[in-house]
C-alpha cells in the first residue's frame, strides 16, 4: 500500500500542474477539487494523471463527483 503522504503530494503536484493558478497552500485535505476551481475536465485530468504517475488503478465505479481530497487519497491508497 502506497503511503498516503505520497498520494497527497502526487495529487497536489498534479493539480498545480493542471491548474497553475492554484497554490500549494490552497490544496488541503478537506477541500473538493471543484471548490478549488478545477473544472470537470481538470478533475478528470488530475485523477487519470495521478493514477498513471502512482501506477494505481482506482476502479472507475468508486470515483464520484464531490469527493474531498482526503477521500481521493484514501481511494488511491486502498487500491495501491
Amino acid at each position: 500500500m502506497i503511503n498516503e503522504t505520497l498520494v497527497f503530494e502526487t495529487l497536489r503536484d498534479t493539480t498545480l500542474e493542471v491548474v497553475p493558478e492554484l497554490t500549494a497552500e490552497q490544496f488541503r485535505a478537506d477541500e473538493c477539487l471543484a471548490d478549488l476551481g478545477c473544472n470537470s475536465i481538470d478533475r478528470a485530468d488530475i485523477i487519470t494523471m495521478a493514477m498513471d504517475r502512482l501506477g494505481v488503478v482506482v476502479p472507475i465505479g468508486e470515483v464520484h463527483s464531490g469527493l474531498k481530497v482526503r477521500d481521493l487519497v484514501g481511494l488511491f491508497a486502498k487500491h495501491s
Binding site: S40, I41, R43, A44, D45, I47, T48, I60, G61, V63, H64, S65, G66, L67
Partner: peptide, 11 residues
C-alpha cells in the same frame, strides 16, 4: 456523475 463519466471516458 460527471467525474465518474469523464474519468471513465478517458480511461
Amino acid at each position: 456523475d460527471v467525474d465518474q463519466s469523464l474519468v471513465a471516458y478517458l480511461s
